[in-house]
Computed example of a mutant assay.
Amino acid sequence: MAENRYSISEFIRETQQEDKGEGLFELETPRLLEVNLDGQVWAKAGAMVSYRGNIKFEREGILEHGIGRLFKKAFTGEGTPLMKANGNGKLYLADAGKKISILNLKNESLFVNGNNLLAFEPALSWDIKLMRKIAGMMAGGLFNIKITGTGMTAITTHYEPLTLAIAQGNPVYTDPHATVAWSGNLSPEFVTDVQLKTFFGRGSGESIQMKFEGDGFVVVQPYEETYFGQSSE
Rank of each mutant, 00 (worst) to 15 (best):
P161F: 03
E160F: 12
P161C: 02
H177F: 01
S183K: 07
L164T: 10
D193N: 15
G169Y: 06
T157F: 02
W182C: 04
T156K: 04
L186M: 15
T198M: 13
A178L: 05
V180S: 04
E189C: 07
V191W: 11
S204Y: 04
Q195H: 12
I155M: 07
Q168I: 09
G205S: 09
H158Y: 14
F200A: 08
P188M: 02
T157I: 04
Y173V: 07
V194C: 08
N185I: 09
K197G: 15
G184V: 06
E189I: 00
A167H: 13
G201F: 06
S183H: 08
V194H: 09
L162V: 14
V191L: 14
P188T: 04
L162S: 13
F190W: 09
L196K: 14
F199K: 15
I166V: 11
A165W: 00
I166T: 05
E160M: 13
A165F: 03
R202F: 09
A154T: 02
F199E: 11
T174D: 06
A167P: 03
Y173C: 08
T156P: 04
L196T: 14
A154D: 05
G205V: 06
T157N: 03
F199P: 00
P171G: 05
I155H: 01
N185L: 04
S187V: 11
N170Q: 14
S183T: 12
S204I: 07
A178K: 06
F190A: 08
G201M: 03
E160K: 15
L196A: 10
E189A: 13
W182M: 05
Y173L: 15
V194I: 14
I155P: 02
S204N: 15
Q195C: 06
F190S: 06
T156D: 10
P188R: 00
S187D: 13
G205P: 05
G184F: 02
T192V: 12
P188C: 01
E160C: 08
A178T: 01
W182H: 04
T156N: 08
P188H: 07
P176R: 02
V180G: 05
V194G: 09
S183P: 07
R202V: 10
V172P: 01
T174W: 00
V180L: 07
G169M: 01
P171W: 02
